[in-house]
Nucleic acid binder design. Structure first.
Length: 271
DNA sequence: CCCGATTCCTGTAGGC
DNA sequence: TGCCTACAGGAATCGG
């Protein structure tokens, strides 16, 4: 499921093929997503040139002359490049045919994602304006997490998955970062020391950078722009390993529910 | 304000 | 083998 590393992998994969290319044709086969595809989307895009693609949190931003496409992959979405001859897959809902001949196809079985068109400054858009800092930016530090967590009673895992605190940390990487930092995910966010938050911020950066290097994590259906899976799944220490032995201390990993999310951790070395 | 619960959706896995 | 149910989850929204 696309978290930040998967969205970054997608961005890097598709950018060389669609930046500075003109959109020749827009095909929308399905418009029911988290929000409906705007009816005017195709007419706003056709014959427009795409500028430099960027990413904010898990949103992809594709600039065109009169605004930005904003794309969110939800939890089962992927964007991949195909030649026009390549067979359509079930759930290939939207497709942009580029002047280069490549087709950008949006595949999203669960339809939790969406695409929208923003005319104004995208950073002023309500969906982007309230977001916290990027995890790989210098703004995310141990002292930042320590400061904004004071008084918070929710669990530290829920806290780092809150997009107002820091963006792009979903269930997989939150679980992995807490394991790496040796912190029990159930701990109240407001009662964790500065020292531990320094370890946690370093762990978040480490696990996300490493996952980006591996091309993301493929559990079921994530594929890069080139249609290839990511390889970080092989490096997961706790996510999806409930009942197995901890790679560090051998204790049996436990699964609990925090914030309605499965949370696997090691009772032996996460305290 | 804060925090937890609910909601959207479909493919997959597990139980019987 | 086939049917049924539970589960996966990002983020908006609601309610206490």
């Amino acid at each position: 499921m696309p978290e930040l590393p998967e969205v970054e992998t997608t961005k890097r994969g598709i950018a060389p093929y669609i930046e500075h290319q003109r959109i020749e044709c827009v095909t929308i086969r399905e418009n029911r997503f988290r929000t409906p595809v705007p009816e005017y989307l195709a007419e706003r895009l056709v014959h427009q040139q795409i500028g430099q693609i960027s990413r904010r949190a898990k949103y992809l931003l594709l600039p065109v002359a009169e605004g930005h496409l904003i794309w969110h992959l939800g939890m089962s979405g992927s964007l991949r490049l195909e030649t026009p001859e390549a067979a359509l897959k079930k759930h290939d809902h939207i497709q942009l045919t580029m002047s280069s001949g490549w087709q950008l196809r949006y595949h999203d079985p669960r339809r939790f994602g969406f695409v929208d068109f923003i005319e104004d400054d995208p950073m002023s858009d309500s969906r982007l304006a309230s977001l916290g800092p990027e995890p790989l930016s210098p703004i995310l530090t141990g002292s930042y997490l320590y400061r904004v967590s004071r008084g918070k009673k929710s669990s530290v895992k829920t806290f780092i998955m809150d997009n107002a605190v820091v963006v792009g940390v979903g269930n997989i990487y939150a679980s992995e970062a807490l394991f790496m930092a040796g912190i029990d995910p159930r701990r109240a966010a407001g009662r964790i020391s500065m020292e531990r938050y320094q370890r946690l911020s370093a762990a978040i950066k480490s696990v996300l950078s490493s996952a980006i290097e591996q091309g993301g994590t493929t559990l079921r259906d994530f594929v890069s722009g080139q249609g290839e899976p990511g390889y970080f799944a092989q490096k997961l220490n706790v996510y999806g390993r409930s009942g197995a032995e901890c790679v560090r201390c051998g204790t049996t990993l436990r699964n609990i529910v925090l914030g309605q999310r499965a949370s696997v951790y090691c009772p032996g070395c996460q305290r």
